[in-house]
């Protein structure tokens, strides 16, 4: 079998080579786009993934360090604390028995109305005397973005469930929520 290179290049060969070359360029270009997309996703991920939010108790401990910085705060909304004050939604969230007063200035998502729903809020600590279910505080959380963090628990609407029941992790340990628990 003679596979030695030919000296004369005919049109068909040139056409095939051009096709291959064009295909290779396309694939290299697509690979470059994919690498850029992957790199972008990795950078975004590294920036946010490890600590997507701080829980209320951690944010209170770190309040001095956080200062005016924007961060995400997570906690469960305490039913009965939600009021609408001229377009601003004011409510309290709890995590590990630590409570934060929140003033949220944009429209909350639809599921926000569910009792004890966990929410992630974007904003910053703001100085201002407030009263919450756990006593007086000199800071509240001013938020402009709310995400509802639903759980992996799926319960049929047909099943009997006390919608107002306090989640175990809150009810079992938080003394100041005893009144709420007895009411429910």
């Amino acid at each position: 079998m003679d596979l030695s290179p030919r000296h004369e290049v005919d049109d068909q060969d040139k056409f095939r080579r051009d096709q291959l070359k064009s295909r290779r360029i396309k694939v290299y270009f697509a690979t470059l786009i994919l690498v850029i997309a992957g790199g972008f996703a990795a950078i975004q991920g590294l920036r946010n993934a490890t600590l997507f939010f701080r829980n209320v108790d951690e944010a209170i401990i770190e309040r001095a360090d956080l200062g005016e910085r924007r961060f995400r705060l997570q906690g469960k909304v305490i039913p009965g604390t939600v009021i609408n004050d001229e377009g601003v939604t004011v409510f309290e969230i709890v995590h590990e028995c630590e409570v934060a007063k929140v003033r949220h200035i944009t429209d909350p998502p639809e599921l926000f109305s569910s009792p004890w729903i966990p929410v992630v809020l974007e904003g910053r600590w703001t100085k201002g005397a407030v009263e919450n279910i756990n006593g007086s505080e000199s800071y509240y959380f001013l938020s402009d973005r709310m995400l509802v963090k639903h759980t992996n628990e799926y319960v049929s609407v047909n099943e009997e469930r006390l919608e107002q029941s306090i989640p175990d992790d809150v009810a079992m340990s938080c003394e100041f929520l005893r009144d709420l628990r007895e009411e429910s």
């Binding site: 992957g38 996703a41 975004q44 991920g45 946010n48 490890t50 997507f52 709310m146 995400l147 639903h150």
Partner: peptide, 22 residues
């Protein structure tokens, strides 16, 4: 409809996009 956002760069979403791109 649940979170109130189409996309957030949290660990699950970011790693899934990386999986797709890889």
């Amino acid at each position: 409809v649940t979170w109130g956002s189409y996309w957030q760069w949290d660990a699950r979403l970011t790693t899934t996009v990386l999986l797709f791109v890889t």
